[in-house]
Design a protein around this nucleic acid. Structure first.
Lengths: 404, 404
DNA sequence: TTGTAAGCGTTATCAA
DNA sequence: TTGATAACGCTTACAA
């Protein structure tokens, strides 16, 4: 009975002679060895065949094909990747998959990657920078071919991991954001935006603290730049204000979603406020209550009418809030845009279906994913760093903000 | 100069003496070896420390901790999994992530898995059984700890892969469906449902062919059962019909979404038709046009009013279609439910916001994910097969179907 | 065109 | 408590 001895030729593992069922070895799966035995060649030949059939003689190929299908071989990717050092996995970190915005982007990324044979490892961070760092750390253990993260604000630890990955030649792409290029003043830091939102609302201290932590912990790490595919939320916020100003409004409100670490929404809010004030208008920053977004929007509209009757136009952090407000206005018989103009963000499908149709900002939700895929694939191919890209958005003016 | 020779002790690879930066070896990353060298121990000790710090002496642990942070070590999961045969990855196959229904389930699964330290590999199949099989094959190369697929209809190849995986001890869970248990007749096969839908619409031959292929290619493989977490679409379809019948309607329509391989929608439609006919009512099966769902719903309402004026109630494959119809009815001044009762499926947030509020079927979107996670984690722990589970749904009666 | 040998970075096993 | 050694399943490099 051959115990583990130093024989020159180790006993062929568990006689892969059996008809078709698995040869039990290690963890009991069919390996390249098993297939090779079936085909009467060695493992390396099968390996070659799998990667490039042309490298193998035709009749050998035939036997290998037969062996492959009769054994039901599934290549072990851990082993392959370990040996070759080549990964075909892309890691994606998003705040929340249930949010249609990120889900569409994930689908876009998946679409763009699938043809190239890449797979998608997705982790969701729940809008928490802490969880983002933990997830990133976990995901990096797979040594993904590329890394896609959401936004440009991260914890210092996350920045370090991203910088290390990038230094190791892994394309790192930040999506859903694109830094403002040399603004002519006005655009403050996102930290200030967070602070502003916190100051304006009546949320309890814990939320305040969280927001403050977010604001201070997320400054860009020492000069390292990453590829960005998205748009400037600062630009959008300003455009939203300008749109309402152009329609003649002088008392405005910006309604933030109340998600402490959604700094992109805060940035839009701050830009909105700045632009409005620069134009001599009065602005109030409101934070929507938690819970279902439509209901929150309804509530906000009520509060605005009650507590700040001078306000004639409101912009929202997303279309669900705005639609809620619109529906509530309809219910109360409040004229839109006559008494109150409403402007959303996201241009969800429902926006143009309501009556009056909701003005909103159309976003490249799916394109962010496909463009990220394109950018990262070409970077992988060329070895050059991935290209940043500012994607287009459009403020779609509909009835809800029609000029007076 | 030591070339590759058979020295007893291979030269310590690329002197890991340097302060902190990576020791370049293999593919240039910090390995367990490097950390061990820093700490003055061997790799296996560091490995032990990582998995169970208690197994290591306190002062050794201290040195390892220091080495770990100074090197910025990231464990290589491919190597770990290859060596241990233990996976911490769960693979999820969904038709489309951009569909809020599946996105929420994915988020639920992610939520349920995260605490247990599992990661999520997501692939989207675009409602194509062919792509599902390809994706499954790709994903299996990672030897995931568990497999979550959508629905109970798959290609024969997919079934085989699923059965093999299950036989190898990998929990396989089918979500968003739950087979009817011993029905008292009436419920035909999904293949028939597909055929019925195809027969009722005016789609071009190619779509017809696809649907037919789907219908014939997706019968369950020889008796193998998989864990199912979801609900019976047959039950839901019947309940939808009964709800409308109870309100006194005798001329009904079921509006299918027109996605050929969405057999679950077809099943609901068939059950709806059967139940209505069994009650002596007249039913028409309509297939919505492609394109944006709200617009499709609007269009369908117009057609119904024009071509089938006797119909007084319509049920839809999803809330977006139904909402479109509802909004179109409002626009035309058509009374809902007076002239036409409308019933949706999915109970999206918008349903109860509209006026009249849309009756719909509330689904355990997020729960399907969390329950799948629970079931599969406990299966992984106990070694028993994962438990199936019929999750609750509820037909929420609102104004749009209020009885006459 | 095919094969041999070595090694990828980790963990299981057994020994000290 | 720590270490030596041999896998895990595959691919690279080189040889035949």
């Amino acid at each position: 009975m051959p115990t583990r001895a130093t024989t020159a030729k180790p006993a062929p593992p568990a006689a892969p002679a059996a008809p078709s069922r698995q040869a039990r070895r290690g963890h009991g799966r069919v390996t390249l060895q098993d297939v090779a035995a079936h085909a009467g060649v060695t493992a390396i030949t099968v390996s070659r065949f799998l990667r490039d059939p042309a490298q193998v003689a035709e009749d050998t190929a035939t036997r290998i094909r037969a062996a492959l299908s009769s054994t039901g071989y599934v290549p072990n990717k851990q082993a392959g990747q370990l040996a070759s050092g080549v990964s075909n996995m892309v890691a994606l970190l998003v705040p929340n998959l249930a949010n249609s915005i990120f889900a569409e982007t994930a689908q876009g990324l998946s679409d763009g990657l699938q043809a190239a044979g890449f797979e998608l490892l997705i982790a969701s961070t729940g809008y928490s920078l802490e969880r983002e760092e933990a997830q990133l750390r976990a995901v990096l253990g797979w040594f993904p071919a590329a890394l896609v993260v959401t936004g440009r604000r991260h914890s210092p630890g996350t920045f370090k991991l991203m910088a290390d990955a990038q230094a190791a030649g892994v394309p790192v792409v930040e999506i859903w954001d694109h830094e403002v290029t040399a603004r002519r003043g006005g655009a403050k830091d996102a930290a200030a935006a967070v602070a502003a939102v916190v100051a304006a609302d009546g949320t309890p201290p814990t939320t305040r603290a969280a927001a403050h932590a977010a604001a201070t912990a997320t400054r860009r790490s020492a000069g390292v730049r990453f590829t960005q595919i998205g748009f400037s939320h600062d630009d959008v916020g300003r455009a939203m204000a300008e749109h309402l100003l152009r329609a003649g409004h002088r008392r405005l409100a910006y309604v933030d979603s109340g998600v402490a670490e959604d700094y992109r929404a805060h940035e839009r809010g701050l830009a909105f406020v700045n632009a409005a004030q620069a134009a001599g208008a009065k602005v109030t920053l409101v934070v929507a209550p938690g819970g279902e977004a439509f209901d929150a929007g309804r509530h906000v509209l009520g509060e605005l009418l009650r507590a700040q009757p001078a306000i004639t136009a409101a912009a929202f952090a997303n279309d669900h809030l705005a639609c809620g407000a619109l529906l509530e206005a309809n219910r109360r018989g409040v004229a839109v845009p006559g008494r109150m103009a409403l402007l959303g963000f996201g241009d969800f499908a429902i926006a143009r279906q309501l009556s009056p149709a909701l003005s909103s900002v159309q976003l490249p939700r799916h394109a962010i994913g496909t463009e990220a895929a394109r950018s990262l694939l070409s970077a992988l191919k060329s070895g050059e760093p991935a290209e940043s890209m500012a994607l287009g958005w459009a403020l779609v003016a509909r009835e809800s903000t029609a000029g007076g």
